[in-house]
Design a protein around this nucleic acid. Structure first.
Length: 502
RNA sequence: GCAGCUGUAGCUCAGUUGGUUAGAGCGCCGGAUUGUGGAUCCGGAGGUCGUAGGUUCGACCCCUACCAGCUGUACCA
């Protein structure tokens, strides 16, 4: 059976930037998503799912002036030569879905979905080429109340995950930033490129600090490796105007809003943005979310398609990882208003607002705070095989347990060495093992071994032979009482976990 | 993409100025124990030293290119 020469052997390897997920991770994710879903449902949102593949033009990702999609998206051609792409977020496909079914959907239309998205970019720690997002969007609601609701829903979701007091939802408005751009002479299509550079510079505030952003707004910035990043090329006065906007956050929302008003008083679009922010602040305040949702002009978000309020949930705590480095999780969810995205299909703007949760990043934050149960104490009851001739009897036990709703399995490996069977049960995190040899069968009984209790006892053992003879944490029950006894012991184990503060 | 650092067993790492057959710990598999998880003891499998060239009598070690990983930076629609 050693057929293939080594040279021909295929190397088992995962493509860069992708990961396999195993039981504990999948279960933890499911538990987390379930909590998120409950909150979204409570807010009146309905689930809707779209496929992972869309026509590339629907995603809006053709390179400008070229017959080829952006390199950042995984793309291929259909048999009719049309470009298809794997979705890179959940917002563009939703816009397509809404546009395609516009007349039959109730407006405003509230929906949510969780799904995998793909980006063909350089992976890094915590950054993959396939990852999961959880989105909620309201389409067809122009009122800032819809944006305020999104911010509150983000807060409620994080509270439900046990992160109360460890995050802040920060909200700003693109229109205010546009007003600032106007004030420094960057209005108009000819300055679109510069505006984008300014946007990205401001977006880096948390990482580079005020001085880094100042450099990026001006001539440019040289980083530690000696690499130079070209800046926006603003003059000193303009730079300070932008920075005063970014740093406009005051002790209270009203204070922040007064400062912003002064900064954009000359600009009608800027003033409109401030009005919207004031309205959002009023709504979240009235609903009792002060402290959880704050107006903060330093939030800009990198995406170009936002047209009004933008918001971001940031975790405020730090954690030391196993390498002893301090890790900040930063933003775990973000979104904003995108009035133009559905409109690409409709010929007129459709006011929409929504946000996206980075599922993996949020989960690793929950792991770091111990807010998620990662231990896999979900193993099956293992029915061991003492003698092969009785396999039918053992299988009958398994079957009875399963019918009673107990997760159970027959040991299917080589039963020659009994110790291996318990070793297997141990590895599977089995709570119990069922043992019936010829002695037990003759008496019409079975042994139920409590592997969790036994593990605890094993910490004190010194002599192997003695321990074996003692058969710790093991009870004998009549064969007919098997199911009843198993259920009882499992319930006791569960109560123990509960009591231990688990 | 750019820059720096790093590639030796499944994992963490040794490996002398360039010198015979490349090592350890952990893990894995088998046995001591044909009816009991841990510990212990014994045995075993597992390597084209990232890949390909070059220098040399001789390369894990030196040189070049490529590939991959890490860190920073850029991009992230």
């Amino acid at each position: 059976m050693s057929g293939k020469a080594k040279a021909d052997k295929l190397k088992a390897r995962l493509p860069r930037g992708f990961v396999d997920r195993e039981a504990a991770e999948i279960r933890a994710t499911e538990r987390m998503l379930q909590k998120v879903r409950e909150i979204f449902e409570r807010y009146g949102f309905d689930p809707v799912e779209t496929p992972m593949i869309e026509y590339t033009d629907a995603l809006g990702k053709f390179l400008p002036d070229q017959d080829r999609p952006n390199e950042g998206v995984f793309s291929f051609t259909d048999d009719d030569e049309q470009w298809l792409s794997l979705r890179y977020d959940l917002t563009a496909p939703l816009a397509r879905h809404v546009a395609e079914n516009f007349d039959s959907l109730p407006k405003p239309y509230r929906s949510y979905r969780a799904g995998w998205v793909f980006r063909n970019e350089k992976p890094g720690p915590g950054r993959f080429r396939q990852f999961m997002q959880f989105d909620a969007d309201t389409v067809g609601a122009p009122t800032p109340a819809a944006d305020a609701e999104m911010c509150m829903m983000m807060a409620d979701t994080l509270d439900a995950l046990g992160l109360e007091g460890q995050y802040v939802v920060r909200v700003n408005n693109r229109k205010v930033l546009d007003g600032v751009m106007e004030a420094i002479g960057l209005a108009g299509a000819e300055h679109a490129g510069t505006r984008l550079v300014v946007l990205r510079a401001v977006d880096k505030l948390d990482r580079l600090g005020l001085d880094g952003v100042r450099a990026l707004l001006g001539e440019g910035r040289k980083d530690d490796s000696g690499d130079f990043t070209k800046g926006a090329g603003l003059g000193p006065d303009e730079v300070e105007t932008v920075l005063s906007f970014v740093g406009a956050k005051g002790a209270a929302a009203s204070e922040t809003i007064e400062t912003l008003k002064g900064l954009v008083s000359e600009s009608s679009i800027g003033s409109a943005g401030v009005e919207e922010l004031a309205e959002i602040a009023r709504l979240v305040g009235a609903a009792g979310y002060e402290g959880k949702v704050e107006v903060d002009p330093s939030v800009v978000r990198g995406l170009e398609y936002y047209t009004g309020p933008v918001y971001e949930a940031e975790l405020t705590f730090e954690v030391t990882n196993d390498k002893g480095q301090v890790v900040r999780f930063g933003s775990v969810a973000g979104g904003g208003r995108y009035d133009g995205l559905v409109g690409r299909f409709k010929g007129q703007d459709v006011p929409s607002t929504g946000f996206s949760i980075g599922v993996s990043r949020l989960l690793s934050a929950l792991k770091a705070t111990g807010k998620v149960n990662l231990s896999d104490e979900n193993g099956p009851v293992i029915v061991t095989v003492m003698d092969r001739a009785a396999v039918a009897d053992y299988q009958a036990m398994v079957s009875e347990l399963r019918k009673a709703g107990v997760r159970a399995e027959l040991f299917l490996g080589n039963p020659k060495q009994f110790g291996k069977q318990l070793q297997y049960a141990d590895r599977r995190n089995a709570p119990l093992a069922i043992i019936q040899g010829s002695d037990e069968r003759a008496e019409g009984v079975v042994q139920i071994k409590d592997l969790i209790e036994g593990k605890r006892l094993s910490e004190d053992i010194e002599d192997n032979a003695e321990w074996r003879a003692a058969r710790p944490a093991q009870v004998t029950v009549p064969r007919t009482d098997l199911v009843e006894a198993v259920i009882k012991i499992l319930a006791e184990q569960a109560a123990d976990r509960e009591g231990a503060g688990q």
